[in-house]
């Protein structure tokens, strides 16, 4: 029984979500291999070989894998899938894009966003925006899984010494082409991996106010900045900062929600945070039902005061 983790990487380094997936893979009970599929991704493959608990890295390098197109990456996984009992992807935008394609081609069900491995064929996963936790058992030969990063500790990035095996890259499908990418500039900690997150909602009122109020607090705490859907839809913050059922799922040590009412869909993305602080004018706001510490106050006064007091 061997599990294959499909690494998320930028060709130079391994993204942290991969490390959580490795921990989940170990819990299934067998050896753990990692697939690094990319172009000129030797550095990423070398980094994958260092991950503690990984016994082999499979490195597929070719132009078809350059931009992570689902059609090509899925074909690459399928080329070696029959050697494995479990295929695990991080539940990130790219993992979620590719995994179901692989599962369908193998004619197996996919298990999305697992938060716990009960046994090699049984897993826990949240449903209904995290309002219920289902335990599901797979009856398929190969288990195709996406792993919710916040459900598992990260494997140590160093200490391993896996062998790297090169395999041929698949041919390009010719059905899709990469046109371009617009990366949001961000020198803060990555949202899904941050220890502290400060999140702003609609109450900030404008993009200028959002930056003006939230940035000093984030700077002071070395925190990542998040946002509610309302704030993103109103254009106060870019959409990849959205925390919630349909955005990022986070579980930092400290989550500070400023001017966020706390709709079910937002809570789904952050209610596993260790400590939640809510700052809101409306003392009836649902966010106070999950907050460890609630402050009923105008955020335009309270947040700058908080920055000063830290």
């Amino acid at each position: 029984m061997t599990a294959l983790v499909i690494a998320e990487h930028d060709n130079a380094s391994i993204k942290s979500a991969t490390l959580n997936a490795v921990t989940a893979a170990k819990a299934t009970g067998g050896d753990v291999h990692v697939l690094v599929a990319g172009e000129n991704a030797g550095a990423a493959a070398a980094a994958a070989a260092q991950i503690a608990g990984v016994s082999k890295v499979i490195h597929a390098d070719g132009a078809s894998l350059k931009d992570g197109l689902a059609e090509n990456v899925a074909a690459q996984v399928l080329a070696i899938a029959s050697n494995y009992s479990h295929l695990l992807f991080p539940a990130t935008a790219s993992g979620k894009n590719v995994a179901p394609r692989v599962a369908a081609k193998l004619d197996v069900a996919q298990i999305s966003d697992i938060t716990k491995v009960v046994s090699a064929d049984t897993f826990e996963r949240p449903i209904y925006a995290g309002n219920a936790i289902a335990t599901v058992q797979s009856t398929d030969g190969i288990k195709v899984i996406t792993v919710r990063g916040t459900g598992f500790d990260a494997a140590a990035a160093t200490g391993g010494s896996a062998a790297v095996e090169a395999v041929a890259a698949v041919a390009d499908s010719g059905k899709s082409a990469f046109v371009g990418r617009e990366v949001t500039k961000n020198d803060r900690p990555e949202l899904t991996a941050a220890k502290i997150i400060v999140s702003g909602g609609r109450a900030l009122g404008s993009a200028e106010k959002f930056t003006e109020v939230m940035t000093p607090l984030a700077d002071k705490l070395g925190a990542a900045i998040g946002a509610s859907r309302a704030a993103v839809d109103a254009g106060y913050a870019p959409n990849d900062l959205q925390v919630g059922q349909t955005g990022k799922i986070v579980a930092p040590q400290l989550y500070i929600a400023a001017g966020i009412s706390g709709a079910i869909q937002h809570l789904a993305g952050m209610k596993d945070s260790k400590v939640i602080v809510a700052i809101n004018k409306d003392e009836e706001a649902p966010i106070f039902s999950v907050a460890d510490y609630g402050l009923v106050a105008d955020l335009f006064v309270a947040v700058p005061e908080l920055v000063k007091a830290l």
Partner: peptide
């Protein structure tokens, strides 16, 4: 025919009741 069997569905762990703090100093 379903391929995944749902063994059980439970409520997520409840968070302990929080407290309201009077001001920023108390929060910090």
């Amino acid at each position: 025919t379903p391929r995944l069997k749902t063994l059980k569905v439970v409520e997520p762990a409840k968070r302990g009741a929080g407290v309201k703090v009077p001001d920023v100093a108390a929060l910090v």
